[in-house]
Nucleic acid binder design. Structure first.
Lengths: 347, 347
DNA sequence: TTGTAAGCGTTATCAC
DNA sequence: GTGATAACGCTTACAA
């Protein structure tokens, strides 16, 4: 026995007002008298009235929903970075009264999903995750006129759309320089998938630092794959089995870095003593204990909060939806160097 | 320059049919002639017609959307198990034409979100994550008549609602027995938060095994917290600092288990040789390399796929939405024991 | 400051 | 087998 939900019509009848006035009062139109507004608000509150999103959407053409299309890698691998990004984004959505629509996409399915979103008018905008260097989704979204913000960026025309990215080149150049300053010249880069633009920029930063210090880059010291723990483990074993192995390892994410440390332990090598380790760190929440930030961190890292990025990207997108003709926004965030136990201490 | 999207009216005009007939043809009503249906389908396809979800929802009262309310722990910790669960669920939604609505909730916010979903008729049903032993959300959802399926279950009245759970008691009893069979009698349980019902059932299984083997349970050997890597690390250090420390460690999740192994390595102890380790494993995708399943696994574990659970829960919920008066479904899945390198080999 | 009425794009109830 | 027509619950000109 559920009582039929209250709607505008009933509410206005009970108040002896027209639906128009009630709607205006609730939506903050300036012309309605303060007295009426208060009366309406109180009644709505008391009766737990909530406007129907479907009806509102039909009337306005807006859905107040944002779509996120999350890529799923081979073997149904879903990158755990996304949950933190979404946690950040959802804060912005909650604040602005937006809903978040999630869709998982296997390789190649993304475009169809965007088209579906657009043709059904299911969402007011989308966040683009994991941009490649050449990113057809960007042109697609422009052409179907679906507002979007990219987390990261593509390799070209980056001033023609909104994005928020970390300065990956600079981050990895600085990280590499730190290792060089500690005397290393044989440095391995355990990179992410280089079809992803961020991985390419990281590699460029890595190589720029080597070059600036007149260190020849050695292709054997570079590898690239999806950033899993197991990958980091296997790649580290492979690196240390090279003749003339690297003396320092640089990881693209804390997950492979953890696998790398596991491998070092198996080999009886101490991270920070026998082999230097530095990793990019998205500050994934589930790796930190509540007081994780108080204790000295384990990894030396180049660090930037992916939750903060998620929140800001969501805000940028909402802003763009509210005012579609505003200019594209580009934000480039610098990462922080955090000194931990996996490199020489600096004092 | 976006052309106005095509709608039923335009489509039917172009076909020289009524909206009714076109709608019926597209929705598979039996009375429409095969000839008409084909003609309509082809035109719809050619013009890329997609019915408006808002309009359909307004007319039918159904949203074809499912809500997921994901709890966020202190310090914005978002449990990475959820992304794998959602990946599984999204498969079922894609197959059935449902959308997934996501909301992150801080402690205590869940109920308000469910109420909001219900009063705005935003979704047709919800998945309940992380049930506690006494779970007020279940009564709430019953009372507001919002269809739901629980992943896990509460401590009582479990036959009054639909749920899917792993047999956590049995899993941990078997895991503990395995350690006992290998000669251990000082076994630590690094458990999850015991406000969660699954953690309680795991502890019960652990204690049942001890009792069955006449081993006195030692409160010092049990700890409980949110399942982070850092927690596993710290808890392991604490355990091994006890006088009369445990000789075997049992972890509630692979994340603290990884932290535990890191701690063992720091102490110069070899997992599987100096200290036995066994962990529950949700088969999180991001910890596996593409060929992770081919190589001998690192951890000895009690294992059950959380992606598979997500898919099945979603299917159960859709089934329940389609036929609201069917009986509650309860599924109890048994976990698998997987022999890895962190206990004695069994051959 | 408030009200009337049209419209958003479907589905569903009748007729025919 | 097909077609008018009335909901569904809002927003928004346009009037008053």
């Amino acid at each position: 026995m559920t009582s039929a939900p209250i709607n505008l019509k009933k509410l206005s009848e009970m108040l002896g007002l027209s639906q128009t006035t009630v709607s205006r009062a609730l939506n903050g139109f300036p012309e309605v008298s303060e007295k009426t507004r208060v009366r309406v608000r109180e009644a709505a509150e008391a009766l737990n009235y909530r406007p129907s999103p479907s009806a509102a959407s039909l009337a306005t053409g807006k859905t107040r929903a944002i779509g996120h299309v999350i890529p799923v890698s081979e073997h149904r691998m879903i990158n755990p970075h996304f949950s933190d990004f979404l946690a950040g984004a959802s804060e912005a959505y909650a604040a602005a009264g937006y809903d978040m629509l999630l869709r998982m996409a296997n390789a190649g399915e993304e475009e169809g999903i965007y088209r579906d979103f657009a043709s059904r008018r299911r969402v007011d905008g989308v966040v683009v995750h994991g941009p490649k260097t050449i990113e057809p989704r960007i042109d697609l979204l422009k052409s179907i006129d679906l507002p979007f913000v990219v987390h990261g960026r593509s390799g070209s025309d980056t001033d023609t759309y909104s994005w928020l990215d970390v300065n990956n080149l600079n981050a990895f150049q600085q990280g590499t320089q730190l290792l060089i300053d500690q005397g290393h010249s044989q440095i391995a880069l355990i990179n992410g998938l280089e079809s992803m633009n961020f991985a390419l920029r990281r590699r460029a930063g890595f190589e720029a630092a080597l070059e600036a210090n007149n260190i020849a880059s050695d292709a054997r010291y570079i590898c690239s794959a999806d950033m899993t723990e197991t990958y980091g483990h296997n790649a580290t074993l492979a690196q240390l089995n090279l003749n003339n192995p690297p003396t320092a390892l640089m990881f693209a994410s804390i997950l492979p870095a953890m696998g790398g440390v596991r491998a070092l332990n198996e080999l009886g090598l101490r991270p920070g003593k026998d082999v230097a380790v530095i990793t990019y760190d998205d500050e994934l929440s589930f790796l930190q204990s509540p007081n994780g930030r108080d204790t000295p961190p384990f990894f030396t890292s180049i660090s930037s909060s992916i939750q903060a990025a998620g929140k800001r990207v969501a805000e940028m997108l909402i802003q763009q939806i509210d005012d579609p003709k505003q200019d594209a926004i580009n934000e480039l965030w610098e990462a922080d160097i955090v000194h931990g136990k996996t490199t020489l201490s600096t004092n």
